[in-house]
């Protein structure tokens, strides 16, 4: 078993819940970051399990965008509001500040324009919650060093030429991009391969080597002179 873990490998449109209704680990972390009653957009929401969970447990007014029709149909059948659409293009439709949170879980790496999508997330929502597999994880580095090939695992079964995940990054890459885009990281959680919470700080010096995935709560850096932030 090599990196990233099964949880992190879920691809766009794949069911994000198990048969007994349990949420994927990283989705539980995300759910904990959301305050009750919020307006929320889940981008790449899969079968809508997180939206349903948040509606039931936190009375969240949720919407979803999902690329795969199978995911959309499953989500609508659950009774959550989901449209078939593409995050790369369709986020532009929403008005600024329409939501309190925009969630992008395990989808950033499948975007054509990850940076533009991040900008859009923080345009339509006050906060963005982004989770992604960390390619700086030591096992990924080890795989590349010893075999000289892109990792192919149970969680990421496709060869490099077949995967929908086209923009992998490391935690450090992400933190640098956030700084460059004037995005403030309010909270970061490092996760192990099985999705359990790592005790390391996600933005600390060791998480980039030792954690398999990460979840970040983001907001815009207040413009100069703004009060309160």
């Amino acid at each position: 078993m090599i990196v990233p873990p099964a949880g992190a490998g879920a691809r766009v449109g794949e069911p994000v819940s198990t048969g007994n209704g349990d949420l994927r680990f990283d989705l539980r972390i995300i759910a904990d970051m959301v305050r009750p009653g919020a307006r929320l957009l889940d981008v790449g929401c899969g079968d809508g399990a997180l939206l349903q969970h948040l509606a039931q447990t936190k009375a969240v007014d949720g919407r979803g965008i999902e690329l795969s029709m199978a995911g959309v149909r499953a989500a609508v059948r659950r009774g959550v509001s989901v449209i078939q659409g593409n995050a790369d293009t369709d986020l532009a439709d929403y008005p600024a500040g329409a939501f309190d949170y925009a969630i992008l879980s395990q989808t950033l790496q499948a975007m054509q324009q990850p940076r533009t999508v991040l900008e859009q997330l923080l345009r339509v929502a006050d906060h963005a919650i982004v989770s992604f597999p960390n390619f700086g994880y030591w096992k990924a580095r080890w795989h590349l060093v010893t075999r000289g090939r892109m990792p192919v695992t149970a969680g990421l079964p496709e060869e490099w030429w077949a995967t929908p995940n086209i923009h992998f990054c490391t935690i450090k890459d992400f933190v640098v991009l956030a700084r460059h885009m004037d995005i403030r990281i309010e909270h970061g959680v490092a996760l192990n391969e099985d999705g359990s919470v790592h005790r390391l700080s996600a933005t600390g010096p060791w998480a980039n080597l030792l954690s398999a995935q990460a979840v970040f709560l983001l907001t815009r850096v207040a413009p100069p002179g703004a009060v309160g932030a």
Partner: peptide, 14 residues
């Protein structure tokens, strides 16, 4: 759907 999204309406589309 695009029109409804642009006013942040509650919409599902299949």
């Amino acid at each position: 759907v695009h029109a409804l999204n642009s006013v942040a309406a509650n919409v599902s589309f299949v």
